[in-house]
């Protein structure tokens, strides 16, 4: 490393520190302040550290709403990501392995899924008519419908790297179609599956708009909705509001620390190929 590279690095880190790290430090500091201290909105060391007090108070708010929200968000995320992996891999597999006139249609739908904003009110109307409006099940299927396109694309391009000889060897070994998929292909999809899980989990966990529309009602609250609700309620209790932001930021941070590589792989998929 040259001196120039070293100093450029130091300066860049200083600038990035102010722009990208300080806002998070501000969240952390405000979250542990007292109510009066936090209300000043200043970037300052807390007069008193109230980490545990604020934590328990946030959790207790509105009859442990935040815990319920974490539960709901977890259920939605786990269920929809499971289905997204399974469905995405199955569609990507057939799409890649079986060229036919249908493929163009499926591709058109995939692109539409990536591009078109969901038609909200008609969706509510359909959810209502099948009895899934305001239900976690309905929310899970919504997330699956909206996340499919991305999953299919990732799986399809990964499956293209698995030699077809393997399928044929399995056919000769007497495998049925579902056995080829579940016993030969699916185990080989591990790297891309991890990527899909990580990227989709984060986006579903962070999703605000869709629960806002499709999951109204107290008992269905999700983590992002609590932030939105508390924003109104805690106008004067910034310490609690920021404690909530802190809590919502921690899951992605943990995922980021452990799965940085998979996130990068997923987010940049297609960037090189175009």
């Amino acid at each position: 490393m040259t001196r120039r590279q070293f100093y450029t690095g130091v300066i860049s880190l200083a600038v990035a520190g102010v722009i990208f790290i300080l806002p998070f430090v501000f969240v952390l500091l405000t979250a542990v302040k007292t109510k009066q201290d936090a209300a000043l909105l200043t970037f300052s060391w807390p007069v008193e550290w109230h980490f545990l007090d604020n934590l328990t108070e946030v959790l207790r708010t509105r009859n442990y709403m935040l815990l319920l929200a974490y539960f709901n968000s977890t259920v939605i995320t786990v269920c929809s990501v499971t289905l997204l992996v399974l469905f995405g891999a199955m569609v990507g597999y057939v799409l890649q392995r079986r060229p036919s006139g249908w493929n163009k249609v499926i591709y058109a739908f995939v692109l539409a899924g990536l591009m078109i904003p969901p038609a909200v009110v008609p969706t509510i109307w359909i959810l209502q008519s099948v009895g899934l409006f305001k239900t976690l099940t309905g929310m899970v299927f919504i997330q699956v419908a909206y996340g499919l396109a991305f999953s299919v694309l990732l799986f399809r391009s990964f499956i293209a790297t698995i030699p077809r000889d393997l399928d044929e060897a399995a056919i000769i070994d007497g495998a049925k179609p579902w056995q080829i998929f579940f016993r030969v292909i699916l185990p080989l999809l591990k790297p891309v599956t991890v990527t899909v899980i990580v990227v989709q989990s984060i986006s579903i966990f962070n999703d605000f708009t869709n629960p806002l529309y499709y999951l109204p009602g107290r008992e269905n609250v999700t983590v992002q909705l609590t932030l939105y609700n508390f924003q109104g309620q805690f106008q004067t209790q910034f310490n609690l509001l920021f404690m909530n932001i802190l809590l919502v930021t921690i899951p992605p941070l943990i995922v980021f620390v452990f799965f940085n590589r998979q996130i990068v792989a997923g987010m940049t998929a297609g960037a090189v190929k175009g």
């Binding site: 030699p163 000889d165 044929e168 060897a169 000769i172």
Partner: peptide, 19 residues
Amino acid sequence: EPSQRGIAMVFQSYALYPH
């Protein structure tokens, strides 16, 4: 069906299941 023909095949790439 291939599996009903009483044949076995060795592929050019060997096609061993990597997992």
